[in-house]
Amino acid sequence: MAIVDLSFEVEPGRIKSIIGPNGAGKTTLFNLITGVHPVSGGQIVFQGKDITHQKPHYGAGIGISRTFQTIELFGNMNVLENIMVGCHSRFKSGLLASGLRLPRMKKEEAEIYENSMKLLGRVGLSSKAQLPASSLPLGEQKTLEILRALATEPQLLLLDEPAAGLNESETDGMSELIYSIRDQGITILLVEHDMRLIMKVSDEIVVVNYGQKIAEGPPDVVQSDSLVIEAYLGGEIDYA
């Protein structure tokens, strides 16, 4: 699970993918970037700022957001509220302002509601706004997680296996969503096992094995790298 020797850069506005066999350290990498795990060595820099030792809740405020490999929706809340929580870091009303329902808070609430509904409308989920988040089918739960992350208005979005468990048409929908996020100018760091999706959407790929980088480059270059082929069961990769 540990990251041993891994160094790369992500250019703004592009889609960079991290691939590698199970246990290569991909999710660990996300957890290091977002401060969930403490970093024991090395440096993480975001827009020229050292964020190596920040707390988990810090990222959302400076423009880093993420989704999770195993779905981490708020199962006790409805679809709309899940996205509204995503707006948390962009607003200020505290305990007293909220409890006393000050005008400032009311204005913020209206804005949060509007923003969230707009995001739901973007993927045609508006009609399900009031349903419990846990009642959605898997594909929509994955989408909802991405919307929730988008609600923080990130500049960098970390997607951890957004297509895992999705069927082919759902995966196509997912790649459309990923493109539209990129076109919005958001930088994407993608971890995924679905090679078809990876090869299609990535501008650049980093291949990791045992916590080390073994290759980096555009999809076609990485595909023909012998070390990469070796890492994937020593055989050929099926890019079908």
Partner: peptide
């Protein structure tokens, strides 16, 4: 409110709440 939703989100998933 924003604070109340944050409270409930914490109950739902601490990991996701802090990521937000």
């Amino acid at each position: 409110s924003r604070v109340g939703r944050a409270l409930r989100s914490m109950h739902g998933s601490e990991t996701a709440a802090s990521a937000m």
